[in-house]
Amino acid sequence: MSTTMAPVKARRSTTEKEQETPAWQKRLTSDRAARIAALLSFFLFWVLISWLFLRVPGPIEVVQRLVDEFSRGEVFGNFGKTLYRFGVGVALATVVGIAIGVVMGLSQLGRAFFESPVLVGLSIPAIIWSFLTVMWFGFGDLSPIVTTFLTSVPFVIVNVAQGVRGVSRDLRDMSTTYNVPLSRRIKDLVLPAVTGYVAAGVRFAIIIGWNGVLLAEWFGGGGGVGYRARWWYDANRFGGFAAWVVLFVGFIVLLDRFVLDRMIQRAFRWRDASA
């Protein structure tokens, strides 16, 4: 019996392939290049739409209106007001949301107690809360703060409760065996285990809360980004309106990219170290 040995083609390792790829090709296929391409595509789309439809302000007009707003001294004061209301609302939603979420995750009774109110909270849109809080609290800081809180807290609760329920049973049994006190279990076992869920909840809270604060300012006045956007809307000046939209969308994107993303990376550094 004869056997035929086919020559095996030499295969290159991933390191070798990486070394052979030209630098320009690596740059063109990087994540950074994809992000820049997305931004450029959006920008070109915007230019095209503004060129086709008169009612859509183009980038140059929006930048001019933004510069005007800066020179009038409207930006920092209004933005500061909104940030304060938004910050307080989201911070409260995070603290209260984590506390209720942990209770719902750990206790069957807690879950039964909070489940229906949370479901109701999730189903009420930000616009309804903004109407209600303006009627309840008038035109001050309180209505946007409460609107931000009420619109965002259910999302934190749901995410945290889900995370707590998913905490490893093996680690919980280990803690029981060693009689680890409840406070330490929450700090060292439950909270780190739910960090990902908390981060997702806070991200939702920020995006939903931002809607809430702007709507409350839109309808309730008393200064702020929402109030100023409405001012331009009422004046039928879409360039000014769009300038404020660009400002707060830009703020959320930067906050997510440079603050939330880095916080999440820091919280999960044990995972990166293990890889």
Binding site: L171, M174, L189, P192, A193, W270, R271, S274
Partner: peptide
């Protein structure tokens, strides 16, 4: 199994 907290 060791049952260690992976984040500590």
């Amino acid at each position: 199994d060791p049952r260690l907290l992976p984040w500590r």
